[in-house]
């Protein structure tokens, strides 16, 4: 009797959520390579923590990415020189197949310019499609704080991008 999550189900789950999880990982880490490691590392950890018969809860994956990102940041100083030497090009955060390259790059720049506490809420809300309650759980903050950070963040981003999107 085999009812563990199948390879096919897992692939479907990844097709649905991997891009948004990767975007959050990118926001939480220094470069694309670290973001990929972060995401993989988080998935391995989540699978170790959950029942293998069910697909992992999305909010738990976001939470794990964030926690591992904090660990990664602590290791960062020791690795910085090596990373800078091998950094190379960093991939875009957004899909240039659906939107022009320039807009994607400007939105990415606008997002990076936001204070981190706003940027992560905006990412989780807009591209992660989480509720404020879920965001509160991921970031360990009250839901009202998540909502107000979202409003401030969105307004700041709109100002940053007024010539690009509006």
């Amino acid at each position: 009797m085999e009812n563990s999550t199948s390879s096919h189900e897992w692939r479907k789950w990844l097709d649905e959520y991997a891009s948004r999880l990767l975007l959050f990982a990118r926001q939480q880490s220094r470069n694309a390579a670290d973001a990929e490691d972060l995401l993989q590392e988080a998935m391995v950890e989540v699978w170790n923590r959950v029942n293998h018969h069910e697909l992992p809860p999305l909010a738990l994956v976001y939470t794990t990415i964030r926690r591992r990102a904090i660990d990664q940041a602590r290791r960062e100083d020791r690795r910085r020189k090596r990373e800078e030497a091998s950094a190379g090009t960093d991939g875009l955060w957004f899909d240039t197949g659906l939107m022009d390259n320039e807009t994607c790059k400007l939105v990415e720049t606008g997002m990076k310019a936001l204070p981190e506490i706003y940027g992560e809420v905006v990412t989780l809300k807009i591209w992660g499609e989480l509720t404020f309650d879920e965001i509160a759980g991921v970031l360990d903050i009250p839901a009202n704080t998540a909502a107000s950070r979202y409003r401030y963040g969105l307004e700041a981003l709109r100002k940053n991008l007024k010539d690009v999107i509006l």
């Binding site: 390879s7 692939r11 990844l14 891009s19 975007l23 899909d95 939107m99 807009t103 994607c104 509006l166």
Partner: peptide
């Protein structure tokens, strides 16, 4: 503005990363 942002989608992971993630399944 929010609506317009939602039309911009997160970049898809590379095939290589997807393969790495696929293999995290126990």
């Amino acid at each position: 503005f929010e609506e317009k942002l939602r039309k911009i989608k997160a970049a898809p992971p590379s095939a290589k990363l997807m393969a790495r993630l696929q293999r995290t399944l126990p």
